Amino acid sequence: MKTMTDNFLISFLQRFDQHPFDVKMHGKTYHIGQGNPSFIVNLKEDIQGRELLTSTSLALGEAYMKGNLEIEGDLFHALDHFLGQLGKFSMDQVKLKKLIYSSQSRRNQEKEVTSHYDIGNDFYRLWLDDTMSYSCGYFKTENDTLSDAQYNKVERILKKLYLKKDMTLLDIGCGWGYLLIRAAKEYGVQGVGITLSKEQKKIFEERIKEEGLTGRVTVELMDYRNLENWGRAFDRVVSVGMVEHVGRDNYGLFVKNAEAVLNPGGLFLLHYISALKEYPGDPWMKKYIFPGGTIPSLREMIHILSEHQFYTLDVESLRRHYCRTLLLWGQNFNEHRLEIQEKMGTEFTRMWDLYLSACAATFNNGVIDLHQILLSKGINNHLPMTRWYD
């Protein structure tokens, strides 16, 4: 039986021969591809063929989480060589339909979002930087720290928005509030953030008091779908890393609600993880990390935005910046690995280590991208004609 399992597994893995690697199992070593191995996979237990064919990412990801699959050497290095071949993964969309296409109701999406962001502020504090920014940084130099990069990212966004004193700024999916705090302190804007995470709201409110911004910055627990009936309008709207959570069927609804709260001629900056083409999502990521998460392609988002009075002013890719951001998060995470493992358990810790390294690898390979799109609601002829934020 083991021989049959070995034969199927090795035969299956032969398709991933772009970068050579070794597989150790049952006391034997199997070589995949040609040349010296780029990494070594150590399998302690069998992986069933039906699991690999139903979802390669689920089968391999769960094996790693449980400790049945070990990587000898650097995890990112191995994944960087392997995940560039995602097109060779198997995925049975019929069997995985409920997982891949989960309900996009308000109740279910709130549950999905809070399952990730309400893990606990103490957990995120261990490996995020002092700004508590959980999105792609911007590295101006090779020597920039993670904190430098997050400072640079927010600075770049605020400059792109051409803010002026007493403008109103809405942040859809405001996280722990660093962007709005910076906008209020440096530009004198009136800021409002909305989030579904009670944990994020708690920290944001504490920061508002600490920074002396009570009355100038506020945060509310709100679903983006409530914006168009809110009765408020803003000069500027920003959304960082949020549209990935709304689901493909709701992209238009998200944009419609952003349009509803933006004044004519106002600017909207959308910062989000993107894809080259439309794809339903990765089963392992959807099951364990971002339930319901779907990554928009750049082309579909541009198309939807154009249907809602939005004129595209600028598009910028930060793909390599996100790879470096994730590598630094992973470094911080592993510096606190024992503490995280003690609090959250071994399987959770291995899962998150895999998540951070896998995301870095997929950005590095161009499987996913990060785009910032700057738009105006209708024509705005009063902006500078040059990119002065460069």
Rank of each mutant, 00 (worst) to 15 (best):
K343P: 05
G231L: 05
F76W: 12
S297W: 08
Q14F: 02
W352D: 03
I157V: 15
L253S: 12
L169A: 00
Q48W: 08
Y30Q: 03
G188K: 07
W230R: 10
Y151H: 10
Y288W: 15
V192N: 00
R225Q: 10
L13A: 12
L305R: 02
V261M: 02
G61F: 08
L179N: 00
L326G: 09
N121D: 14
Y151S: 01
A63T: 11
I181R: 02
G177F: 00
R156T: 03
C174N: 00
D118A: 12
K209Y: 04
G266A: 05
G193E: 01
W329K: 06
F139G: 01
S197L: 05
V255N: 04
R216Q: 15
S38H: 14
K202A: 09
Y322A: 00
S102V: 10
R232Y: 05
K44S: 11
Q48N: 13
Q93H: 10
S147K: 10
T294E: 15
W127A: 02
D129S: 06
G241A: 07
G120V: 09
M351G: 05
R207K: 15
F76K: 06
T312M: 13
V41A: 11
L227T: 02
Q372N: 09
N108R: 13
P264F: 06
S317I: 01
G212H: 05
R248H: 15
R319V: 06
R350D: 08
L227E: 01
T29R: 10
N257A: 07
K140L: 03
F76H: 12
M344H: 15
G330C: 08
E205K: 07
A233F: 06
L213I: 03
F21L: 04
N121T: 13
G366Y: 13
